[in-house]
Design a protein around this nucleic acid. Structure first.
Lengths: 135, 135
DNA sequence: CCTTTCAGGATAATATCAGTCCTGTATAAT
DNA sequence: ATTATACAGGACTGATATTATCCTGAAAGG
């Protein structure tokens, strides 16, 4: 039921980049030190965030990472899903085939409703509202 | 972000026992076969549910398990927490010391609100409303 | 062309998950 | 009392996920 450490790092990372939105790229090294995230692990995380189109990378001298969209256009859901894949409460809400007992299941809609609740809340929580955070 | 297989089994198990609330105890063997849950794993799960006061065990011939309360008094939250411990979205919402960056964090309250949302929903969803389920 | 910085794959330690197995203990029936 | 039955509880195991690290390669800029 918990997000992983990796997701928590990703959120911190985007939070940090939000402070410098519209400025020059920030190096992995800097984010790592400021946000207390292991350097090489952060590199992996930023790759995922780049593939998800949340950040953009620049190589070479003066390289680093920038947000690809303004903080107001990035939700917690975007970041969580970039790292963990689709949010699901139970196996069966993402892959109906994992429901191995036949017939209509009244627990299934309960998980789906909960999932919708979570997705909705994470989706409407954006990084501009969290920017004053120093975590 | 997902519940574990064990929790899913536990929910199915309580769902099955709900059908026979107020009747004679049901053997592990029977629940296992009817609900397609590995027998010895189910034994472990029922031990946890018993310790949490959700089911009651009876030994010897004619032994087995019964709900300790009516299905209307057992919530999904009760079962989830019996298996997984307290529901938390992030490490820091259950143990503030895991928040290794100093100062006020504006992401923290977001996880807490989400957690409260989930706990509230799971808490008000009881097994009497899910009993017609055949999962 | 050479330094810097990211890209991406291989590797590894540890934890958690999912489950089995065996011995022991309580209970009911004989 | 004895015995068969059914749960109690701990030890153990294999697979997978988590949480990283390290190394080689590629792009970009001076």
């Amino acid at each position: 039921m918990e997000i992983t450490q990796e997701t928590d790092y990703a959120v911190r990372c985007i939070l940090y980049l939000s402070r410098y939105a519209g400025e020059t790229p920030i190096m992995i090294e800097t984010i790592s030190e400021e946000m207390r995230i292991p350097r090489s692990f952060l590199a992996k995380i930023l790759q995922r965030l780049a593939k998800a189109g949340i950040v953009q990378s620049f190589r070479g001298v003066k390289g680093g990472f920038q947000l690809k969209r303004p903080p107001s256009a990035i939700s917690l859901l975007d970041v969580v899903e970039a790292i963990e894949g689709p949010v699901a409460m139970n196996r069966c809400t993402i892959d109906p085939q994992r429901c191995d007992l036949s017939g209509a299941c009244t627990v299934h809609p309960v998980w789906q409703t909960l999932q919708a609740l979570v997705v909705d809340y994470l989706g409407k929580t954006t990084f501009d509202t969290m920017m004053q955070c120093r975590k």
